[in-house]
């Protein structure tokens, strides 16, 4: 059973209770911003000890009024995960049977390739232990039948946890409801470029996910795919070919003559 999180952005009131719950459950210190940044957003982006951020996206509407497009930003738990593809350490990034992408810090070497491979720019390198951290989808809670801490604490039912197929169905129904309420471009954010995500969004305007701080068509970067695909095959052939070529060259032609006679 693949589990997922559904985030109905139309119901988010920006209370940030999920941020607090995430910090508490994962035993992270709270680090206030040293100065006011002109926004209610807790901090500009995710960090190694802050895995769940409510983005207060300020959007100017047609009537010149500014609206907040709240969105919850964290690991998307992609079906085709760029971090997993880029990771050089076997077993450092794993996928649980329920679809959750999790980092195993004992095996993480701290190279940061997952940060480059992630189309959502989610993982963060900790300066303390030089390992990479992100949302675990509370795998330590879901493993024993509990829902993630952010879901548990959400006061508006903006967040739902459950079986992915059920949530997709629910999301589509909610998008239709929003459409009939006049949000004609309401829809579900479940980007196909990464094989779908285990974090699903209902957006009031799904045609412009950027307005919610989400990339429009995220895919695993082509340089990562090329490096881990054809280049790897080509490289193996070049290295093995070089060694084998040298071996057979020696069998066929052998060494050059060591010395030339004195002609003087």
């Amino acid at each position: 059973m693949i589990v997922a999180k559904l985030i109905d952005t139309s119901l988010c009131i920006g209370c940030k209770a999920c941020e607090v719950a995430c910090q508490e459950w994962n035993d992270q210190e709270f680090k206030p911003q040293p100065e006011f940044l002109g926004t209610y957003q807790t901090q500009p982006e995710l960090s190694h000890n802050f895995w769940n951020l409510i983005k207060f996206n300020e959007i100017e509407q047609d009537n010149k009024m500014v609206a907040w497009n709240m969105s919850k930003y964290q690991c998307m738990h992609c079906a085709d995960a760029g971090c997993m593809k880029a990771c050089p350490a076997p077993g450092a990034i794993i996928r649980h049977a329920n679809g959750t992408v999790d980092f195993v810090h004992d095996k993480c070497v701290g190279c940061g390739y997952c940060i480059t491979g992630c189309p959502f720019d989610v993982p963060r390198l900790s300066p303390k232990d030089n390992k990479v951290y992100k949302c675990t989808l509370c795998s330590d809670r879901t493993a024993v039948g509990l829902e993630p801490a952010c879901i548990k604490t959400c006061p508006t039912n903006c967040l739902t946890f459950g079986e992915r197929d059920d949530l997709l169905f629910q999301a589509e129904a909610r998008a239709k409801e929003l459409q009939s309420d006049g949000h004609t471009s309401a829809g579900v954010y479940n980007p196909a470029g990464v094989g779908g995500t285990n974090v699903l969004y209902v957006l009031k305007d799904a045609s412009k996910p950027e307005q919610y701080g989400l990339p429009k068509d995220p895919t695993i970067p082509w340089t990562v795919s090329l490096w881990k695909g054809p280049l790897k095959a080509l490289g193996t052939m070049a290295l093995a070919g070089g060694v084998l070529g040298a071996f057979f060259h020696y069998l066929k032609f052998g060494p050059q003559q060591e010395e030339a006679p004195d002609e003087d």
């Binding site: 050059q256 003559q257 060591e258 010395e259 030339a260 006679p261 004195d262 002609e263």
Partner: peptide, 8 residues
């Protein structure tokens, strides 16, 4: 050796 230098 000079012979090596001549050869190579």
């Amino acid at each position: 050796t000079p012979g090596w230098a001549r050869a190579h």
